[in-house]
Design a protein around this nucleic acid. Structure first.
Lengths: 140, 140
DNA sequence: AATTAATTTAGAAATATTCTAAAATGTTTT
DNA sequence: AAAACATTTTAGAATATTTCTAAATTAATT
């Protein structure tokens, strides 16, 4: 399918999210979702778009990333002050974070068990449980 | 003790960390450690210092927070893009994060069990495991 | 085709943090 | 205690990331 109707997949995602299929959103959706899952920053996605000769401003990349996140198509991952990663894997999972180089790697949800944590305080509900395993280079 | 030798505690911490006891570091150490554990940003600490008529620049507050963190006197907590909290509780523990108001609350280490996660990739070691339980307002 | 609503855009603004190099302070040596 | 040296502090500039603004464009509806 992918070769024959290259926009179908991206279009479906936008419709599912109730977002107008504009040229920019379609192009960004293709860049984001038509490949293996990954973690990307707004700057990186903008650079990819420019590279692919998609005309889109950085402001629109930010808008779109947030709209996709609100729609559940992306997940925002915060592990470093001053930089947001957007994760195309929205399933239940966790992360390895390499402090050395800032690299992020998924850990499947089944591979980690978070057991018996306290109940959410009154008036709140658990929106998500993030487990970040921070890795440092092994010492010699 | 605290009333009679108010700088002793802060001084001990600096010496333990191998940091010269300058006027600014002493004052910031007192503001940070001579009260109950909490989470504070650089701006907030600077405001407290100004309030307490401690003359210190924001740059020094940043320097000091990082030096204290490197020395293990503080722990940096990243839960929101673009803002760092410094936690005076350096023991093994986790956090509730209230997405509504940006509030952070400690969860004692014993209250959460993170079971059987994958081994650290070759060449790395686990520096820390962060569990962040994100809370949203309960819907009506 | 005209109207309306949503989206995109460049550039400015806001926010948080780091950098720079000079001045001040603390430490060690004489 | 003065001189010499090293460390720290500082203001302000610089950087980085993100958000805002208002005008222009594009998409959807009539």
């Amino acid at each position: 399918m992918t070769g024959t109707r290259p926009f179908k997949h991206a279009l479906d995602r936008l419709q599912q999210a109730g977002l107008r299929p504009t040229r920019q959103r379609l192009a960004l959706a293709r860049l984001l979702f038509d490949k293996v899952d990954r973690h990307i920053t707004a700057e990186q996605l903008h650079a990819e778009a420019v590279d692919a000769e998609v005309q889109v401003s950085l402001a629109t990349v930010y808008n779109t990333l947030h709209q996709f996140t609100d729609a559940g198509l992306l997940r925002e991952v915060v592990v470093e002050a001053g930089r947001s990663y957007f994760d195309t894997n929205t399933s239940d999972h966790h992360h390895f974070f390499f402090e050395g180089n800032g690299n992020l790697q998924d850990i499947p949800g089944e591979s980690v068990t978070v057991a018996h944590f306290p109940a959410a305080p009154a008036g709140t509900r658990v929106a998500r449980v993030d487990v970040i395993i921070r890795l440092a280079p092994e010492e010699a």
